[in-house]
Every structure is written in structure tokens, then in C-alpha cells.
Design a protein around this nucleic acid. Structure first.
Lengths: 194, 194
DNA sequence: GCGTCGCCCTTTACATAGTAAGGCATCCGT
DNA sequence: ACGGATGCCTTACTATGTAAAGGGCGACGC
């Protein structure tokens, strides 16, 4: 009796889900094919049938997953409000999976992540922002950096910190900086557009 | 004739230096003890004598190295100028070693890196900033994120991009965002101080 | 019923990684 | 000259990523 067929046949989604849990719980270093197989109750090699490209492809998929967000912009919303929504959504998505932040920041956006960036740019342009690409770039930088610093403060991935509780100042600091950034972007935008 | 003693006896500094070169040239994934040994013309195990703690300690040291900057503040400089100097120095240090950015953002600051943060905070306080800790946090977030996005744009660590030339817009975008951020920080600071 | 085909998963195998244990030059002080 | 100390090497073991090939199970044709 070498093996029984698993009841639910293992899919790309289940793999990504389990990988996210593993990375968040134990860190990227502990995300290995064999451990991932264990979590899915499957041998490591089974993963390769659903993830052509092996671990590299898996990491790409994880990065894409935590950087793909989508926001419904109200028809007549100010670009500042739309921008704030995007930034908060991106922060939440990254913060939900601290284990893969390093991947998200390192890997260039691809596929759905790149599409999300394009949509964000388009929404801001339609809302009247003159230089939306620059603004989106600055916002992405700010969100990435904020989450990274916030995770540093929580002591995530810090062996000397036993309890990785949330950073109480995280959200407030984020909102303050976001407000400052949007203000600055608005000033630069009207200057350039005038 | 098993081995000859190398002419220069291998030190922590030489190890870190070689590791930085390796990580920058080939990526963190290719930074291995054996390859590092090859680069130093030594067997891998020799490294452990100068790096107690093994690879983990090495990575910590690399992160510390690229996040430790120091700025001489003029006696009577405005805090905005001091802040800008720190941010530019931090950006330059990170940009000089793209391979270890992920480490720098992930690992909490320790030792000299933490000391640099404290000194930066102190300088800004002395220059009249009412809430220097918050400002330093926001600046660190901004610098980290900017460098990450800039490296994404250069296509560093992107197999589909053959030539990782510098991002032409990187510096300009950085300066724009920095100016916006400092403006916003100044407004929040006077509000809080008043 | 009975091949047989194809899909998923497992087994096996190998190159490479980190690193603990112990060995053997070489160098220094005496 | 000689006894450490120091600094590097050799060996060995475990864990990882992944190529290659094998096996069971359902579906489908006859």
C-alpha cells in the first residue's frame, strides 16, 4: 500500500495557500518543497506537476499574490481618496503575509500584479492626476517601506523577540506619512500641470 | 601537500567584502559558503573561525553593513538639510549593494545600524525637530521603499532583463518624493509642537 | 469483462547546501 | 628545539531542489 490518492486532488491554489501559511508561520527559510509537501499531505515531487518551474515559480507566484490588490474607485472620487484606498489595500495585503515581503519587494511586478499597477495608474489619471505614473511609483515605494519598517518594529523574524505582536504605532504612522506624501504629490502635480 | 597558508590571513572584513561582491554579482541565492570560500581562496569551513554563527551571522553582518551610514551634521543646519543628507546617504549605501537589500529591509537594525539610527534621531532633535523618532521612521520607510522600487525598475534580479543598467529616473523620483515627505513631516511637526 | 491509455502521485537518485568534529601544518615564545 | 596556539583543511552527515522513471487508478473502447 504505497500511497492513497488524496481526496482533493491538489491544485495551484492550494499549493500557494499552503506556501503562504508556511512562510508566514516559519519564515521563508523554512519554506521547502518537502515541508510544503507535508503540509499538503503529498510528496514533494507532486508539487512540480502543478507548479512547472519548481520553487522559483512558486516564489514568483507568492510575490504576485501579495502584491495583487484591486480597488473599486467611486465614479467621482478625488484622486487623493482613490490613492489612499490603493495604499491601504496594498499595505493590508503585504501585512497579512509578512513572510513573503522580501519577495514582493525584490521581484519585479508581473502578470496580475503588473495589471493592478496599470489599473491604479489609469484610475488616478481619470481622477485628474496629471502625472499618475510617478505618483504610483512613489506610493508603491512608500507602502513597501512602511510595511518593512513596521515588520521590523514588530520583531517579526527576530529570534530575540518571542512575541511578534502587531506594532501599535504602525497604522497611525502609516496614515501620517501617507497624508504627507499625498499632499506633496498634489503640490508637485499642480505645479507641473499649471 | 594538503594546503598552503594564504598570504593574507582572512579576516571578518575580507569575508564580508567578498560576500557583498558575490551577492551583488550573482544574487543572494548564489551566496554559499563554498562559493564564498572559493572567492577567498580558502575552504568553506575556514570561514567559521572568523564568523562564529555561520551563515546566519554573515547575513546579519551584511545587512548591518549596508544600513550603517554616518553623516556629519553642520552645527547650524536646518533639520530638513540634515534629514536629506541622511536619506541620500542611506539610499546610496543600499543602492551600492542591491543583492542584500532584502536582508536590510527584513532584519531589524542591530549594533552599528541601530546606533546610526539613534544618532540620526539625536541630530534631528538637536536641529529642532519636535518628533524626531517618527520622522526617522518615516524616512527609513521611504528610503527602503524607494530603493526597492528603483531596483525593480532596473530589472535587477530579473532573468528576462539582460542588462541591469541604472534607472534613469531613480534619483529624480527619489528627490521629488523626499522633498514631499520632508514637507509633510515639517507640517505635522509644527502642528504637533504648537 | 478486459486491455490500454492517461493522469497524478510516488520512488529513487544525485548534485549541492550548511556545518559539526577532528586533524595537521605553521608560527611564536621560551 | 619544543610545546602550545592559531588557522586552515578533511571528512562526514543531514537537508534541499529536482530530474527520471515507476505505479496505481479511473475512463473508455471493444
Amino acid at each position: 500500500m504505497p500511497a492513497k490518492r488524496p481526496p482533493v486532488p491538489l491544485s495551484r491554489e492550494r499549493i500557494i495557500d499552503a506556501a503562504l501559511h508556511l512562510a508566514d508561520a516559519q519564515g521563508l527559510r523554512r519554506l521547502t518543497m518537502r515541508r510544503l509537501g507535508d503540509a499538503l499531505e503529498v510528496e514533494a515531487m507532486a508539487i512540480y506537476h502543478h507548479m512547472p518551474g519548481g520553487k522559483e515559480a512558486l516564489l514568483d507566484a507568492l510575490a504576485q499574490h501579495v502584491t495583487t490588490v484591486s480597488v473599486e474607485a467611486g465614479e467621482r472620487a478625488a484622486w487623493q481618496d482613490i490613492a489612499a484606498l490603493w495604499c491601504r489595500a496594498a499595505r493590508a495585503a503585504l501585512l497579512a503575509h509578512p513572510g513573503v515581503l522580501a519577495l514582493a519587494m525584490t521581484k519585479p511586478p508581473r502578470g496580475s500584479a503588473a495589471a493592478a499597477i496599470r489599473e491604479q495608474t489609469e484610475q488616478l489619471r481619470e481622477a485628474g492626476l496629471a502625472a499618475p505614473a510617478e505618483a504610483v511609483r512613489a506610493m508603491r515605494a512608500y507602502v513597501f517601506g512602511s510595511v518593512a519598517v513596521e515588520l521590523q518594529h514588530t520583531g517579526w523574524a527576530d529570534p530575540t523577540a518571542p512575541e511578534p505582536g502587531p506594532d501599535p504605532d504602525g497604522e497611525a504612522a502609516f496614515e501620517r506619512g501617507l497624508s504627507a506624501l499625498l499632499t506633496g504629490l498634489g503640490a508637485a502635480d499642480t505645479t507641473g500641470a499649471a
